[in-house]
Every structure is written in structure tokens, then in C-alpha cells.
Design a binder for these strands. Structure first.
Lengths: 346, 346
DNA sequence: CGGCGTAACTTTACCGATTGAGTTTCGGCT
DNA sequence: AGCCGAAACTCAATCGGTAAAGTTACGCCG
């Protein structure tokens, strides 16, 4: 046991005591120096900082958390049915946006996947009990969402992406789906369409409901023939819905799909049925992706910048944690016109 | 201060001391009881367990980690260029598979996104220094991958998905890309194709190299005309490559694409150029997805079950941590024949 | 019947960092 | 010269859980 002398750390892990020994002070002094608190002279502070750097010291996360400091971590549960998981571009892009903001501020992300809302709430409870996260992001809020109710009770900071509640420990990043629908609707209107079909995602989602409400309003407002069909984001259901709509004696001249996967499915069905796009029917996808750009015909899409939404959700969370007032930036969306939309035939 | 008596916990967080107070023992006894260790009578143990349950006690994660216990967490960094992120189904499905195994065993997943390998290694270093993870999963290993080198040095348990190294703290989940290519090749061969084009992903990826090597072997073996073009998983590059191949006076009668996004891009180009699928050219995608099933024509694809691969990677990691020998299960892949492949015209 | 083994607990130290309460030293002011 | 105050540290407790080292008390055996 020769080496146990002037500050040679025993293993890979360097602690503030190791630094203290080398610097000839106590661990308390090292703590003060590192955290920029008064109580050590500038010379000593500089020396400690230098040594800490030399020894590659990194704070022990567990020790800090134990002392009641924030874990610097945000939780996110992705709840999607097995069959749909991974098929949507939205999520990964959203995630990338969240990460970019969080990692910049030294936060990490806890991610879990679940298949139903009950297990999502169970995961939240776990995280909270463990003190593993500072706050939780909730995606795809439902009408009367049980997760939101649970989080409100628990009082843990939460950001509802696409929600509309607000509270003490709760912010919503509002996605103005009504406004988005306006943009989509106006695009088709400007082309001269008078008969529009809207094939929707899961109607228990609050934002889908808002889209439908807006769609209905605009049809009434403009006197246009409009019809809504639920397809729950499932490609096969989108195909069935498309078939149903197009087999009507006086079917729509334009179709709106709530996701790019459904839009692609719909286009395939149209092609099978012998309808030309955009000759016979125009198609518009509510979500842009690389696939939309390369399909034939290329797909007109609503581009709402999922990454920006992710950044906004993360920023909202950090503001919530810092007790700063929420900013109201609003993610804008625009229609990217491509080949799949054109004026109607007749 | 009335309530500070017989075991009423001060705030939301219940500790073993709270339980001890209620049970009339010390925290040491509670620890023994909870961890199933000898040193407490069965009656006492039962009582403690009941009280712990009643009080909704949950172990404090930070305290355990501080005492040197495993954080029960696995790290995974997704490194993809911005433009490609989210476009591939593979990742999310893989992730779902990983999660299903981990959560079953009480492990959680640390996920980060990065844009280059250097920052991925930096994230690994961070996690290790923090003691935040027990092990790390590495995706898309490159030829002479710097991440693998770094992890080998650090000695942290790692599982390389699709790698071929093995070591003390390192396992690889081997994806038998050569065998997969055999399946793909045989499918086209059986249909009678004599001229095959292969549009590949990023050729710095080890598994892409293996596919190319196998492809070359099989063309030589069978005397078939085969050509390989790199498109780096980028849709536009896939389109360019397709155009290049098809503008040759004697172009291929079948095309293999390394991802479904590239396959869709290629199909679009073929359609633009006036080639019928599968009439003039057959198309096969190396990766199946809902989109493949609903495109028109539906897309023949290699289905290699990304979720199973994820489960296997997670299982491999847990075995590594338990010092059990790695199992050699091998994810199987098969070609799902759909409309996009057929015998060549002439 | 004295001693010994052991079951059933309690005590205490510890993990790494933070923090309020001491302690020492030194300069300045009267 | 003597006292005060503050700067610069040290000391010790703390977070929640674990584990090694005591401490009882009881039953059994020679």
C-alpha cells in the first residue's frame, strides 16, 4: 500500500476529497471553490479549479440528487399502439428538437415507451417517486386525459404538447390546429375545390378534435361540401376510408390526411381505383417528410416543423422549472405545394 | 409541530426510517427485511413489508447509486445527420424492442441524439463519469469505429449492434447481413433476373460493407451482372443513383435499396422516367414498413424485425452485466414478396 | 448450571457533495 | 496595546440506504 499518499485517487472515480487532499484543503473548501461561493480566496479557488481540471473531476450525480438537488432530467413517455410505432416521422423529429434544447442546458432526457395510457401514468409515478425527473412532457393529449389529471394531482411540472390547459405546475405548448386547418383549407379553396374529404387520426386526441371542429366551421363558413372520416392513423383504415369516400356517386375532389403514412396509403388506394392524382383528386398530407418530397406525384404537405415544436416544448419546460412566465411563440405551419394538389377537373 | 410522532412522514417522500419508526425497529432492520437478507424474524419481516407497502415506500435511486449500486440504466446515443433523422422506421422499432426487455427487468433507457461520432463518444464519457449507466448500446458501427475503440479502453460494458468484435466487456449482436443478402439475391435470382443494381446506404457502416461484399460474391458466384452505387441513405442521392443506373444503355432489371425511404425515392424516379414497376424494373427494399405495404405497387421488402433485434441487443446487454455467456440467437430475416418484384420483361 | 452459539436486532461508518456552525488568523481602528 | 470584524478555512451533520461490527437474550449442551 504505497500509493495511498498525496492525493492519488484509488480508482477511476475522482471525488472532491481527492482534490482536497492534493490541494491541501478540506472537501468543504473544494465545494465552495467549485460552486463559485464565497469562503475561499481567489488564489486557492484558482488552484483548486486547476487541480480539479487536471484530475478530470466530474460531480457525482447521485450524491447531488441525494442532497436534494435537481436530477436535471426530463421525462417523456411515448405511447403508441404497436402497429403504428415507428411509422410516423413526427416523433423522432420532435425528439431531436427537445434534445437540442435540453442538452444545451445540461439536461438529459428519460425516454420510455408504453402501449397504453395507464402504463404511461404508472411510469410517471415511478419517475416521480424516484425523483428521477424534474418534469414530464406529455404528447398527444386526449380529451379529458387521465395522464393530465394525474399529473395535476401530483403537482409535478408538466408540459402538455398540443394541450390547452394551464396551471401552477403545468404549461401547454399550444399547437394552433385551427389556424393550421385554415391554411390547409385555404390552399384547397384557392385551387377551386368545392368537395373536400378529411381522413383523420385518432379522434380521442384533443388536437385532432380541434382540427375537425375547425374543418367543420370552415365548410359551413364557405358553403363547401365537406366530410370527415376517422382512420386512427392506421394505414389500412386510411385505405378503407379513401375507398368509401371515392365510391360515393359524387365524391370529393380533394382529400386531407392527418399523417403522411395515411396520405401515402390513400394515394395507393386512389391509384388502385384508377383515380389520377391530382387529375381526379388532390391529396394533401398533414405532416411533411422526405417521403412526401420523393413520391410520385410529390405530395403537397403541411409543414409544421416538428423539431421546432420539440424545442418549444423543452424551452417551455425549462421556463416552468425556472418559474419564468411561459412565452407564447407559436409554431407556424405552412402548406408546401407540390404536385399532388391542383385545381379540380371539371 | 404536532404531527412529528409515530411515523408520519414529513412530505411526499417516504424513507426507510419512516418505516422503521412505524414498525418500532431501526432502519437497518428495515433494510434487511426489504432486501430479503437474514437477520430479521419472519414475523418482523412480514410486518415491515406490510408497512412499507402501506406507506407506498419506494427505494431512493440516488441513495442506492451513491452506495455503489448499479443505476439500472442503459445508454443509447442515436447519431444521424439532421436530414435523415426520423425518416427511418428502423430506429423506433428497434427502440421499442430494447425497451420491452429492459423495462421488464427494471432497467431504464438513457437516450441522447447526436449529429456526429465525436459528440457521441463525449456523451458516453459523460455518462460513465457520472455513473449514470451500466452499459452502452452502439448502433451502426463503422469500419474501425472510434466509439468502439473508446469504449474498449474505458472498459464499460457495451453491445455493438451489427458489429463483429467481442471482448471482455463487449459483445456484438451480429446481424448476418451476408445471409440476408443471400435471401434477397435468391429472391431476384429465382424470378430470373440477370442484371441487378444495388443502391446502398452509407458505406462507412460496417454492416453495409458486409452487404456489399456479399453482393459482390454472389454476382461472381452466379455470373450475374451486378453493380453497386452509394446513396448514403439520402433520398435525393437514391434518386440520382436510380437515374444514373437506368440511363445506361443496358440497365438493370432489378434494384435493391438499402432502406425503404430510398426505395420509395427510387420508385418515384422510375415512374418519372417512364419505367413501370415491376414491368420494366423490379424493386426491393431492405427494410419493411407500413408504407411498403400500402404503396402502389406494394413494395417487396426484406423484413428483418427491428424489434426483435432491439430485444436481442437488450438481452445481450443484460447477460453481459450478469456475466452470463452471450447467447447466439441470430435475428432471421425473410423477403416479403409483394407487387414490386416480378420476372424480368424479356 | 455455566458457558457458548446464534437469531434478532441495534450501532455506526460510509458513499460524495453541500452547508451551517465553529475556529483561526490577520488587518485595522481607537 | 487591545479589541473587533471579517476573510479563509475546518468541522460535522445531512441526504437515504447498505453492511460490517457490536449487543442482547435465549436455548441447548456437556
Amino acid at each position: 500500500m504505497v500509493a495511498r499518499e498525496a492525493g492519488i485517487p484509488r480508482s477511476g472515480r475522482v471525488t472532491i476529497s481527492d482534490i482536497a487532499r492534493r490541494a491541501g484543503v478540506t472537501s468543504g473548501a473544494v465545494s465552495l471553490a467549485i460552486n463559485g461561493k464565497p469562503g475561499v480566496s481567489d488564489i486557492t479557488r484558482a488552484r483548486i479549479l486547476r487541480i480539479a481540471d487536471e484530475m478530470r473531476w466530474r460531480p457525482n450525480h447521485a450524491a447531488k440528487t441525494l442532497r436534494g438537488q435537481s436530477p436535471h432530467s426530463i421525462g417523456l413517455v411515448l405511447t403508441r399502439p404497436e402497429e403504428v410505432v415507428g411509422e410516423e416521422v413526427f416523433f423522432t423529429k420532435f425528439l431531436a428538437g427537445v434534445q437540442s434544447v435540453l442538452s444545451q442546458r445540461g439536461y438529459s432526457l428519460q425516454l420510455q415507451m408504453a402501449t397504453d395510457l395507464a402504463s404511461e401514468t404508472a411510469i410517471h409515478a415511478d419517475w416521480i417517486a424516484d425523483g428521477r425527473v424534474d418534469g414530464i412532457l406529455v404528447l398527444d393529449p386526449r380529451v379529458d386525459d387521465p395522464r393530465v389529471t394525474a399529473l395535476l394531482e401530483l403537482g409535478l411540472p408538466a408540459v402538455i404538447v398540443g394541450g390547452d390547459q394551464d396551471g401552477a405546475a403545468l404549461t401547454s405548448v399550444r399547437t394552433d390546429d385551427g389556424q393550421f386547418m385554415r391554411v390547409v383549407f385555404d390552399h384547397l379553396l384557392a385551387l377551386g375545390h368545392q368537395r373536400i374529404g378529411y381522413i383523420t387520426g385518432d379522434q380521442s386526441f384533443a388536437h385532432i378534435r380541434r382540427r375537425i371542429a375547425a374543418f367543420t366551421d370552415y365548410t359551413l363558413e364557405s358553403g363547401i361540401w365537406g366530410i370527415t372520416l376517422a382512420a386512427d392513423f392506421v394505414p389500412q383504415q386510411a385505405k378503407d376510408a379513401t375507398q368509401k369516400l371515392m365510391s360515393s356517386p359524387k365524391g370529393p375532389t380533394a382529400l386531407i390526411f392527418d399523417s403522411e403514412v395515411m396520405a401515402i396509403a390513400g394515394m395507393a388506394t386512389l391509384s388502385e381505383l384508377g383515380f389520377a392524382v391530382p387529375g381526379d383528386v388532390s391529396v394533401l398530407s398533414w405532416e411533411d417528410s422526405a417521403t412526401c418530397r420523393v413520391l410520385h406525384p410529390t405530395l403537397t404537405a403541411l409543414n409544421r416543423d416538428a423539431a421546432a415544436l420539440g424545442r418549444q416544448a423543452a424551452t417551455g419546460m425549462l421556463r416552468l422549472l425556472d418559474r419564468e412566465p411561459a412565452d407564447e411563440p407559436a409554431v407556424v405551419a405552412s402548406v408546401v405545394p407540390r404536385e399532388s394538389t391542383a385545381p379540380p377537373a371539371s
